[in-house]
Simulated scan of single mutants.
Amino acid sequence: MRVRRLITLSTMALLVPLGAAACTVEGAGTKSECNVGGCTVTFDRGVDAKANILGIDAELVAVNGNTVTMKVGGQQVDVPVGETQPAEGLNVTVQEVTDQKVVVKLATGLSAGN
């Protein structure tokens, strides 16, 4: 787990000189938009939606009211809408839940100013 965290942090540190460089990746049931601050992933509800963020698998497991259950790497985490929980060296923040989608931000805590 420590090695994965170091790789993730190293990857983000390499992106810092790129400034606002961003990328968008779409997969089965997901759309990911990444920049130096992390990645925002939109998961489609009702499908087996997974994304690979900075080498770590992120999967939407369940939604119970305003609480989202995700599996990040090998760790399962419950995150209420608008809150942040740590998982596998990332900060997981649930930004939005609707009947059609769940929007989650995964960030390392690094920013362009670090």
Rank of each mutant, 00 (worst) to 15 (best):
4 R>D: 03
5 R>P: 00
11 T>C: 08
13 A>M: 12
14 L>I: 08
15 L>R: 13
20 A>T: 04
21 A>Q: 11
22 A>W: 13
23 C>E: 02
24 T>E: 14
28 A>C: 04
29 G>R: 12
31 K>E: 15
32 S>Q: 14
39 C>V: 01
40 T>V: 14
41 V>D: 03
43 F>R: 08
44 D>M: 08
45 R>K: 14
49 A>M: 11
52 N>R: 15
54 L>D: 03
55 G>Y: 00
56 I>M: 12
57 D>H: 02
57 D>K: 12
58 A>T: 10
62 A>L: 11
64 N>P: 00
65 G>T: 12
65 G>E: 02
65 G>Q: 07
67 T>R: 01
68 V>G: 10
68 V>S: 07
68 V>R: 03
69 T>Q: 10
69 T>A: 09
72 V>R: 10
77 V>Y: 04
78 D>L: 09
80 P>M: 10
80 P>F: 05
81 V>Q: 14
83 E>F: 11
83 E>A: 05
86 P>F: 06
88 E>M: 04
89 G>T: 00
91 N>E: 04
93 T>S: 13
94 V>W: 04
94 V>P: 06
95 Q>K: 15
96 E>F: 01
102 V>P: 06
103 V>E: 06
105 K>Y: 00
106 L>E: 10
106 L>I: 09
111 S>R: 15
113 G>E: 13
113 G>T: 01
113 G>D: 11
113 G>S: 15
114 N>E: 02
114 N>I: 09
